[in-house]
């Protein structure tokens, strides 16, 4: 795992959260088993094996849930993550229609200004800089067929 100093981590969630993770794993394994069964014996054999393994591992995780290291809780800062993901989804949604230049600039701006609390000038400057560099690199130098407006 990564080297985060202890003191700044978000508070630990209750041990039941481990259980939730375990249940998710079991559910995933179950879905895999179901899907594999539908595929039949040739293509479905291997997914079946893996699915069964997942269910078993999930069960073990559930048994260990109480004693294991609890996962971190979601705090208010987690909303930042939600915002970040939303911005990225928006990016994907529009990029095919209006090219990558504008969404790139906007995404960069949002991240710099709102998620990163940078000053307005820095945010604008860096956003525009990124678009320029990307354009020069991807469209100019590499000739990648990314949807672009200009």
């Amino acid at each position: 795992m990564t080297t985060e100093p202890v003191d700044d981590r978000p508070p630990a969630a209750g041990p039941s959260t481990n259980l939730i993770a375990a249940v998710v794993v079991i559910a995933l394994g179950g879905a895999a088993v179901a899907g594999a069964a539908a595929l039949g014996s040739g293509p479905g054999t291997w997914p079946m094996i893996v699915g069964v393994a997942l269910v078993l591992l999930g069960l073990i995780l559930a048994l260990q849930a109480r004693r294991a290291e609890p996962p971190e809780r979601f705090t208010r800062s987690s909303l930042l993550v939600v915002a970040a993901v939303a911005s990225m989804i928006a990016y994907v949604a529009v990029i095919a229609t209006i090219g990558f230049e504008i969404p790139t600039a906007l995404l960069a701006f949002v991240w710099l200004r709102f998620l990163g609390r940078e000053s307005l000038r820095t945010s604008i400057a860096v956003s525009l800089g990124i678009v320029v560099v990307f354009y020069a690199l991807f469209v100019g130098a590499l000739d990648v067929t990314i949807p672009h407006l200009f």
Binding site: T97, I98, G99, I102, V139, T145, I146, P147, H148, L149, F150
Partner: peptide
């Protein structure tokens, strides 16, 4: 730009 429609380079 949306009005212009998908006048995209690719």
């Amino acid at each position: 730009l949306a009005g212009c429609g998908g006048n995209l380079g690719s």
